[in-house]
Structures are given as C-alpha cells and as structure tokens.
Computed example of a mutant assay.
Amino acid sequence: MLRVAIVGASGYIGGELLRLLHGHPRVTVVAATSDRLAGRRVDGPHPNLRGHTELCFVGHDTLRDIEFDVLLLAAPHRETMGRMAEFLKLAGTVIDLSGDFRLRDPDVYASYYGVTHSAPELIPEFTTGLPEWHRAELATSDRISVPGCMATAGILAVRPLARAGLIEGTVKVDARTGSSGSGVSAGAAGAHAERSGALRVFAPTRHRHEAEIAQATGHTVRMTATGVEAVRGVQVLAHVNLASGVSERDVRSAFRAAYGNEPFVRVVAQRQGLYRLPEPKILTGSNFCDVGFAVSADDGTAVLIGALDNLVKGGAGGAVQCLNVRFGWPERTGLEFTGLHPN
C-alpha cells in the first residue's frame, strides 16, 4: 500500500484529494496538514467524509516525523516554490497542484504571477501533469506539476489542432468557472450575496492560465475569465482561425486521433440533443474532460470547447491520474465515478 501525505488538506482541492484517495484501493493517506486546524478531524471542513475516516489534521512541521512515499501539495501559489526544496527531501515523489512549477520560463512566471520565482533551478525537474500529452514522461517522473483547471480544459481543447498544424494565429479563449475555483478563502467576492445571479468578469485580460495554454500549444493566447453562479465546473471556448483548406472532417479527425483511446477525454460534438457540446454540469465529481467543436464554413474559423469539474480533472483528479500513471496502475483506479444526471 502506497503511503501518501497531503499538504494544504483543509481547502477544496485538499478535500477532493482526501475523498478520492480514501476510495483508492492502492493508497493510504497517512497525513493531512493544516496548521490552522491541527488536531481536528478532517471531516469537519469536509463533512462528506463523515463515517469514512477518523484522520485528523497535523501541523506542517510534523511531516518530517512521518514516513510516506508520495507528497501531494495543495498549498498556495507563490508560497510553494519557497518551500519546495524542503518538500523534495520528504518524499520520493512530489506532485504539486500550485501554479509555481507549471511554467517553464521563470520570466513568464514573474510576468503572470507578479513575483520573481524563488527556485528557478528546480523548474526543469518537473513534468507537466497532463497524462494525455505527457504519459511517457510521467511514468518515470518523481516531480510532477499539475496544470490549472482552465488551462487543462483549454490545452485539451486546443492542442490536437495546434499539433496537427490545423490552426494559425492567435487563440482567443473565453473561460467560465464556478465559485469553488476561488478556493475556501475567497473573501467577500465569493460570498453568495455577491455571486448569486452574477456573471463576473474577474480577469478581462492576462489570466495566468493563458500562459499555460500558450506554452502547451505554441500559439499566442489571449484569455478572458468569467465567474458564473455554479459552484463547480469549468467551460472554455477557444476561438481559432483554421489553416487554409481545413474542413470540419479534418477537425473531427484530429480530435479522434488524439483522444480515441484516452480513458478520461471524450469528444462531444453532436448535431442535436440536449448535451450536444461539452457541458460541465454533467461532469460534476468525475475526472472526465469533454472536448468538442463547431466549425464555421463561411469564414474558416472554429470554436473549440472544453469542459470539466475544476476540482477533479482540473485539480485533485488530475493529480490522482498522474499518481496512477507514475506507479503503473490502471488510470481509472480510484477515479471511476461517472458524474451525475440529472444534477
């Protein structure tokens, strides 16, 4: 049984890691850290775990006295990089869910995160935690950086066409996300009275996931992010210019070639039906990312669509999938939940 510790386990991503790993047949969670809640049961902030675990939070400093094989980091952006050297000494495998090791260029990181990267020498050690495109590297990597939620949806939607040379020019991404993407400590902006009924454009330009999508696709990306009333879910619409002569059949073929055998990516582009294009509502709690497209024959453009649960495939589920790949287990292990309908 693989022994796992979770840093930052009191937040939404930490809670999802606990939920998924407590149902994982090859993993036991031996530590969940939270300095603020040390000594308290984890099913306090995560009441869905009642009756499933008696685990209590421990302080971060106690990790050095606990034996484990894998360390999962759900700590804040900008803080994780300063402690990474310490974290790397604690476990053979480290999987990071912060944004601090996603971008390969420390200057790009500084531009989007507003601070100088404090551990640029460690960046090359990390593999991008997106099995659909980095499976071979992940199978032998002990340093894994899981992409952001909107970045995951955007990359999975755009990269098949980018790799096939089917698009050209700037990619314009319109992303929508539920309130859980802001985390437990979102403050007044996350209060129900402020979010209810709102469509809040919180990043009209230069959302940090823009840089991740650009890095993965090789295209200039311009991204807008809007908060919607949903609690969970991400949906991205990427507006692209198709290369000369590219048809709808070419687009569909590129998606099928990329994802025809993937366990967690489904191509959803139907001409009729209630859910004929990717819809995050039916993905709640699941590790699926649905991708789809609509081609405009009139002007040679297309809209590429990706949808997922931001806390699962866009976070904790993506990390568990990487864990499965790293240790040679079937990728669906612990991630079999299909989502709900109706929801």
Rank of each mutant, 00 (worst) to 15 (best):
F101G: 01
L63I: 12
Y275L: 12
A162F: 06
S179K: 13
A157G: 03
T93D: 07
K313A: 15
R36Q: 13
A186R: 04
V312A: 03
V94P: 02
G92Y: 08
N324S: 10
E331M: 05
T53Q: 10
P25M: 07
Y113Q: 08
D35A: 01
V173K: 01
R135H: 14
A164L: 09
V4G: 07
E210P: 02
L71G: 05
G178Q: 01
E137G: 03
A110K: 01
T128Y: 03
G169V: 13
G317M: 03
G154R: 00
A153E: 03
L2I: 13
L311Q: 12
E194N: 13
E331K: 00
D309S: 05
P263V: 01
R143D: 11
H134T: 12
L156Q: 14
I155R: 00
T205H: 14
A238D: 08
A307M: 11
V303E: 14
T284V: 15
T224I: 06
L166S: 08
C56W: 00
R102T: 00
D290N: 14
R232N: 15
A175H: 07
V240D: 00
Y113D: 00
E16Q: 15
H192P: 09
V108P: 03
L90K: 07
D250W: 03
P342K: 09
A151H: 09
V246Y: 05
S244L: 10
R50P: 07
P25G: 04
A164W: 00
V201D: 10
L242H: 02
L72D: 08
D100M: 03
A238C: 15
S10M: 07
Y275V: 14
A110T: 05
A316V: 11
L323E: 04
R276Y: 15
R19S: 13
P342A: 04
E79G: 02
G11A: 07
D174A: 12
L49V: 04
A193R: 11
T224V: 10
R326Y: 07
C56L: 02
H219G: 04
R249Q: 14
Q235G: 08
R332S: 14
S286P: 09
L49T: 05
I13W: 02
A203L: 09
G315L: 08
F57K: 04
A198W: 05
V115P: 01
M81N: 04
A31G: 05
P120Q: 03
V171T: 04
G285W: 12
A75Y: 15
